[in-house]
């Protein structure tokens, strides 16, 4: 089956005065229809840059795609003329951002903003678009749509603005919705509303979602498959259950262990990952995580690990622990982590 989105070996750099920042260093992932995938990682790992490149929103210069391909419905997206790209953006794929206030136009009524891309892509009149806007506002359960389509963003709360962003993104019925930290700026009770809304709309408007977040709780609620990114690379990928219950990469172990859980009692000691992520101006040789990894071996600092495959639905980790020469270290790691071999 053809993937809706197929990203292969994507590499993106930013050329700055300080030198070349290798933000994305050979990343491959795919998205099938009707699924939600999550790209998880900490700030600076390249998750947002990846999505911006796929959407055709990479600012260039300073950014530049160095290698790779992005197939949308089988068609190459990289190098597409601006005109053709614009026909896709907001129409067949769209995006919602972390901070709705800085992406909404403060001088335009929200109804007009929702209608804008619908009018543009479907060549309809404003009057025709009006009905569609009302439908969308009802779909996102916005109270009193007839009245509220005439308000300005500053009159709305954070959660309401994010709903407007969702309506804007979905009005053309895109095949792919990118959600870049969609709930990070929201309060938890509002976050719960938006997560529910997105899960519900995914079924109703038949869209697939690429979720970018650092919040593993949100991921557990939305994603079927997960890609874990570190220093511009995907270090582990698999089904949500593989990643949460059978993680294989030491970075994933560290990430999962450092998040406190609501259903856990008091503790005085948090597991953490020592050190900080590498500077991508001069990425380290070998595995980027080696310097922070408790199980790093001599090979890790000099060679790039290959992806090792595991049981399960497309579960892979980029780590030398699963190399046949590393059995002793793997046993040590599994013992320490309480994992059965």
């Amino acid at each position: 089956m053809q993937h809706v989105l197929d990203v292969r070996d994507l590499a993106v750099s930013f050329f700055t005065y300080a030198g070349e920042v290798q933000a994305v260093r050979g990343v491959s992932w795919y998205l099938d229809s009707h699924e939600t995938i999550a790209i998880v990682g900490e700030s600076g790992c390249g998750k947002s840059v990846t999505i911006q490149t796929v959407m055709g929103l990479l600012q260039s210069p300073p950014g530049r795609v160095k290698a790779g391909s992005v197939l949308f419905d089988g068609r190459e997206m990289l190098g597409l003329p601006a005109r053709e790209l614009r026909q896709m953006q907001g129409n067949r794929m769209s995006m919602i951002f972390q901070d709705p206030l800085s992406y909404l136009n403060p001088t335009m009524r929200v109804g007009e903003q929702i209608a804008e891309s619908y009018i543009l892509h479907n060549h309809v009149s404003r009057a025709e678009a009006r009905q569609k806007v009302l439908d969308m506002m009802r779909l996102i359960s916005f109270p009193e749509p007839e009245r509220n389509m005439y308000v300005y963003p500053h009159q709305l709360s954070g959660g309401q603005r994010q709903r407007i962003m969702v309506a804007m993104a979905l009005i053309c019925g895109p095949e792919v919705l990118f959600a870049d930290e969609p709930t990070t700026a929201l309060d938890v009770t509002i976050q719960a509303q938006i997560i529910e809304l997105m899960n519900e709309l995914k079924e109703k408007v038949h869209t697939s979602i690429v979720l970018i977040t650092h919040d593993l709780g949100v991921v557990a609620n939305m994603a079927q498959r997960i890609y874990v990114m570190y220093a511009g690379q995907i270090v582990e990928r698999g089904s949500a259950r593989d990643i949460f219950y059978r993680p294989r990469h030491p970075y994933t172990w560290g990430l999962l262990a450092s998040v406190p859980r609501l259903d856990q009692k008091q503790r005085r000691n948090f597991t953490f990952i020592p050190g900080t992520p590498p500077d991508l101006l001069s990425p380290p040789k070998g595995c980027a995580f080696a310097a922070r990894c408790p199980y790093a071996m001599a090979a890790c600092a000099s060679f790039d690990p290959e992806e090792a495959a595991f049981e399960g639905d497309g579960h892979y980790a980029r780590c030398f622990l699963y190399h046949k020469g590393a059995e002793a270290m793997l046993q040590k790691a599994q013992k320490e982590r309480g994992i059965e071999a």
Binding site: S157, G159, Q160, D187, V188, T189, I190, Q191, A192, Q193, I195, E196, D215, L216, G217, V218, V219, A220, N221, A240, R241, F244, Y245, L256, V259, R261, L262, D263
Partner: peptide
């Protein structure tokens, strides 16, 4: 209750079984 039930737990199985109390409206 609403606040606690709104916090997602990083565990898909737990999340599937949890019932969530979603508050209507905003602050």
């Amino acid at each position: 209750s609403a606040l606690l039930s709104a916090i997602p737990i990083p565990d898909p199985d737990v999340e599937e079984k949890r019932s969530r109390m979603i508050l209507s409206g905003d602050l």
